[in-house]
Each structure stands twice: as C-alpha cells, then as structure tokens.
Design a protein around this nucleic acid. Structure first.
Lengths: 158, 158
DNA sequence: ATTGGACTTAAGAATTGTTCTTATTTATCT
DNA sequence: AGATAAATAAGAACAATTCTTAAGTCCAAT
C-alpha cells in the first residue's frame, strides 16, 4: 500500500474522531470548520493562521482570514488543536494531540515532529517533581535541517 | 552565607561577563543597557519587555518603553540574551545562556528554569540525527505549580 | 420541508505588541 | 574635551489579531 493511501486512511480516521469531538462539544460541523481542520491535520509544518488561509483559498476562494482566526481559536478552546510554542510573532498551530516532540531548523524555521518513546517513559527527577503537578514533558531540538545544510554548503563553495 | 549574598555574587559575576561581552561587541556601556540587563538577569520569571519596563520605572522614571524594546533587540542580536519560546503574543526574554530547561504552569503561566544533567548527557536517537546538524535540545515541562495547586484546592473547598 | 438559531461573510474599525522617525538631549569612550 | 553613539519624547507606522455590524447562509431538529 503506497504511503499516500496510508496517510489518507490516517487522516480519514482523524477526521472522524474530530467530528465526534465536535458533536460532543456542541460545535456545528460546518464546511469551513471541517476544511480548516482537515488542512491543519494534513500539514506537517505547523502553519500560522495566515499560511493556512492561503492554502485554503485555493479550494475555498471566499473563505475569510477572519474565519480562519475565529475557527482556530474555537478549536483551541475545545482542545481540538494546539498552539505551538515559538519565538515567532505569528501563532502556529498543530492538530497532532498525541505525545510528540519538535525539531526546529534555525535557518528555515520549519518545525518537524518526532517521537522519542524511551524519553517519554523517563521519570522526572524528584527535585523537579517538587515544583507541582506535572502533566507532560516535551523536547525541542534545535539545529540546521539537511535541506538548509546543503544550501549553506553550496554558498560556501561559491 | 545567606542565599541573597550568594545570588548577588553570581549576579555580579554575570554583570562583569556581560560588560566584557559588550566591549567585545563594541556596544557602549550605557546606564540604561546595564540596568536593563541587570533587571533581566535578576528576574527568574522570563519577563516581557513591558514587565521589565514597569520594574525599571521604579528606579529609572524616565526610561522609555521604546528603549527597553530597542535594547532587548540589540542584546538578542548579539546573543547576550535569548527570546523564550511561548504561546503568548508578547515576547519573553531570559539572560540565562547556559543549558537549562523550562517548567511552565498552565494556570499562572509562570516559567521556571531547571536542570536535568542526565538528560543533557543523553545522545539523540540515530533516526532523529538523520534530520540534520543538531545543536541543542531542551525540555519543557507543563503542569500546575504548587502555588496554583494550593489556590485551586481552596476554591474547591469553598 | 420549514424554520430557529448558530455560523459565516465582508468591510472596516479597534487593539495590542512592536518598530521606526525625527529632532533634541545626554552620556560614553578615546 | 570632543566625536559620536545612544537615549529621549512624541507620534507615526506596522503586523498580527480581534471585534463590530449587518446581511446572508446553512445545520439540525421538528
């Protein structure tokens, strides 16, 4: 089975669970909401509202940026999506709600997900546990991605 | 030796190294720059420009918010301080440049530093190293701090 | 199938956080 | 002490986001 088909299945399941959560939260399943969620779930790059809006305009030319902002805020309040912590002035979002970590390229600023289950299983040291009730821990790795490394290599060679 | 004295010594050493870095970077050691840096170095809560400005107004009533913004930007460009990754619309800063991690309270939003040296020593899994040139990894722990837990306990009891 | 109520839209205005401009004053460094 | 960088005030400009209003659209339940 090709990768693309696999992704579609995963996305389809994610959409179903999203629809269920919406019903549970008394959120109407409007076309805009479904498409905004689908576009975010499909994305691997943690887009901003503006980026998402640009992508959606191709298939929904009348969708307003305002609706994207409003809808993302609604989703976030219902814990259907998450804001990503960044150093950026624009807010970035992700639909991935399972435990995962981030790789951030210091050059192109792209954010990628990754898994590190042996870290997830690690217990937090006692002295840190003193701080309060710990709910979750996640890693951010900084560096330069392959793509940007290649570009920098080229530039130096010139 | 009381804690406070120890902190003062640490701060003093940090100020000296800051002054040295400024000279190396050809940044004039103005009163404002020194005080803004000192206030940030003293803070444990990763303040925003506005918060920092408010604190500094007490001792420097004519200091403009603009100068705080400008100065923090200058410091950041010279890698003397860092922006902290957050979900906030305001930018937050820290003077701590050594390897450390963050605890974030989901209630009061305060950010605390912590150390976890056994994690720092951990090698990143092979498959993640494929992504590119890794420079640094840091943890963010989410939860509710003791203070906020106590307050929530009270509310429930009422 | 109709309808009530929730949702979306456009367009513009308002807000917030941040940066820039200009002219003037102040302070650092040599 | 003088050259020059930096800070100031005040206001303008900007970018990201939110709000407003009024009109139109569409979901869901009867």
């Amino acid at each position: 089975m090709p990768d693309n088909d696999q992704c579609n299945h995963v996305l389809q399941r994610q959409m179903e669970s999203f629809e269920e959560s919406c019903r549970a939260a008394d959120l109407k399943l409007t076309h805009q909401r479904l498409e905004i969620y689908r576009e975010l779930a499909k994305a691997t790059d943690h887009p901003s509202a503006e980026t998402l809006h640009k992508r959606l305009l191709r298939s929904m030319p009348t969708l307003s940026l305002d609706t994207v902002y409003r809808t993302l805020t609604t989703f976030e309040q219902h814990h259907l999506i998450k804001k990503v912590e960044t150093v950026d002035s624009q807010a970035h979002y992700e639909a991935q709600m399972q435990q995962h970590h981030h790789l951030i390229c210091d050059t192109c600023r792209e954010i990628m997900d990754f898994q590190w289950s042996s870290f997830d299983a690690l217990a937090v040291p006692e002295d840190i546990r003193q701080w309060g009730a710990i709910k979750n821990k996640s890693i951010t790795i900084y560096g330069t991605c392959r793509k940007c490394q290649a570009l920098q290599g080229k530039k130096k060679a010139e």
